[in-house]
């Protein structure tokens, strides 16, 4: 165990006993990373900040439930993901039933539909457009797709952790990620 991990374990133990200063250390260590993941899911800085507040408060209230089987960071991020989803549910309820209605879950491949060449300088110059499209497509995805994809791709969390966080089975998690990648591919393809 690294020094930092030992230190964190000490803070967690102390915070469990009601040590405010120790909990503050944990907040300072994790708040920014939590903001990033919440913002990736909510696509809104204000909602993300509210989600971080709620997540940290929930974490404080349930510190006794943290059993150390997963890393504290993983546990905290799982709470944050749910808090971000809850913020979206409260404020953008329509988005939940978004664009995957009638979505095909076929296994047909899509990557070979247009195999890319090495990007030319002109294509590189379109980087801003690529970023805009990625951002727009992420915003259009259903919550489940976006959250599963963000947790897997940006957070590096395992399918098992994602399935627990989203209360889905592994297969449903995989399908959500596949759909997300497929949609992103569709959004980027016209630029090729």
């Amino acid at each position: 165990m690294t020094m930092a991990a030992k230190q964190e374990e000490h803070w967690v133990d102390a915070a469990r006993r009601g040590d405010r200063a120790a909990f503050r250390r944990l907040v300072e260590a994790h708040a920014c990373a939590l903001f990033t993941v919440c913002a990736r899911i909510t696509r809104d800085a204000a909602l993300a900040e509210d989600a971080v507040q709620e997540a940290l408060f929930n974490a404080y209230r349930h510190l006794a439930d943290f059993d150390g089987r997963s890393a504290f960071k993983t546990w905290l991020h799982r709470i944050a993901v749910n808090a971000a989803l809850e913020q979206l549910r409260r404020r953008h309820r329509d988005e939940i039933c978004g664009s995957d209605l009638g979505e095909s879950e076929d296994e047909e491949d899509f990557l070979l539909s247009r195999v890319a060449e090495i990007p030319s300088p002109g294509q590189e110059a379109r980087g801003a457009e690529i970023r805009r499209r990625v951002d727009a497509e992420l915003a259009r995805m259903t919550l489940t797709e976006r959250t599963a994809f963000v947790m897997r791709h940006a957070e590096g969390q395992s399918l098992k952790d994602i399935s627990q966080a989203l209360s889905l089975n592994i297969s449903a998690c995989k399908q959500a990620i596949f759909r997300a990648v497929r949609k992103l591919r569709g959004a980027l393809q016209p630029l090729r």
Binding site: C32, T36, R131, V134
Partner: peptide, 10 residues
């Protein structure tokens, strides 16, 4: 390319 999408910073 997706990694290059702008991240939100606090």
């Amino acid at each position: 390319e997706i990694d290059c999408a702008p991240a939100f910073e606090p």
